[in-house]
């Protein structure tokens, strides 16, 4: 793991978070200076204060929680569903070479097809509501998890499987107590890719249809030239992405503690 190749560095005076915050503060100041100096119109580049104001308005009106909650819920639900489906399918394919040979072509086709191109089709098939959005997210999460599961299960050492045979474990016991934990580091790689895709998919789905979510907020803001609101929506998306990433990382740290 990355810890093993850590290079000794000079002792730090401040924690890294201070450096990150300093960078962000510097950008905000530069942004404010630019807006003031060039007198940029608010519909092109609003000042940081205006964006903050838009965020505050959103929070007060309750729209922030409604839209953020909708998008967040879809991301979590789609991620869980896609991960479960990807794992189940990956398990079946890893265990059945025949099935894998048959499904290799179709899967490659589906995997490489840009899901964005399929998004309008999902709307036609599953309507303007939540279903089409979930289907889009699931389709984006499924493949990275599926591939990672196959790689992980293939990498389970032969002698661990032989141990399972000697101990006469049932198929379920072998899966849950030997193979799944062994494959978990790889599965998490797939999950991390899938999580990024899930946020993209959720926003994309809301761009195309519906009356809720951060994606919808963006299209509304851009159509009505409410640029500060657009900026606020973008910032919320970033926060959502970070939140998903951080919780996944925490889950990984907890489940893979033995790797450190």
């Amino acid at each position: 793991m990355s810890d093993a190749v850590a290079v000794p560095s000079a002792p730090r005076r401040v924690p890294p978070i201070v450096d990150h915050l300093a960078g962000i503060v510097a950008i905000v100041i530069a942004w404010q200076v630019y807006v003031t100096a060039t007198d940029a119109p608010a519909y092109m580049l609003p000042a940081p204060g205006a964006v903050g104001g838009a965020l505050a308005d959103l929070a007060i009106s309750g729209a922030l929680w409604r839209d953020l909650g909708f998008t967040f819920g879809n991301v979590v639900f789609g991620l869980v569903l896609g991960a479960l489906a990807g794992f189940a399918l990956g398990f079946v394919l890893a265990k059945s070479p025949t099935l894998e040979r048959w499904l290799d072509g179709p899967i490659l086709l589906l995997q490489t097809a840009p899901k964005i191109a399929l998004a309008p089709l999902f709307v036609i098939w599953f309507g303007f509501g939540t279903t089409s959005k979930i289907v889009l997210i699931v389709s984006l999460v499924l493949f990275p998890v599926l591939v990672a599961t196959i790689v992980g299960l293939r990498g389970v050492p032969q002698n661990a499987l032989e141990l399972a045979r000697i101990l006469k474990l049932t198929t379920w016991q072998r899966l849950m107590r030997v193979e799944l934990p062994m494959a978990l580091p790889e599965i998490f790689i797939g999950l991390r890719i899938g999580a990024v895709q899930a946020v993209v998919g959720a926003i994309l789905g809301e761009w195309m249809s519906g009356k809720l979510g951060l994606g919808h907020l963006m299209t509304f803001a851009s159509a009505t030239y409410k640029t500060p609101l657009l900026f606020a929506a973008v910032l919320l998306t970033v926060a959502l992405g970070i939140a998903v990433h951080v919780s996944l990382e925490a889950a990984e740290r907890c489940l893979l503690r033995w790797k450190q």
């Binding site: 050492p157 002698n159 661990a160 032989e162 141990l163 000697i166 101990l167 006469k168 107590r177 030997v178 934990p181 033995w258 790797k259």
Partner: peptide
Amino acid sequence: VARPIGFVFQEPVLLPW
């Protein structure tokens, strides 16, 4: 006996977690 055999591999096959 349900499991008549104990097997010790060349490498100790312990579950790392």
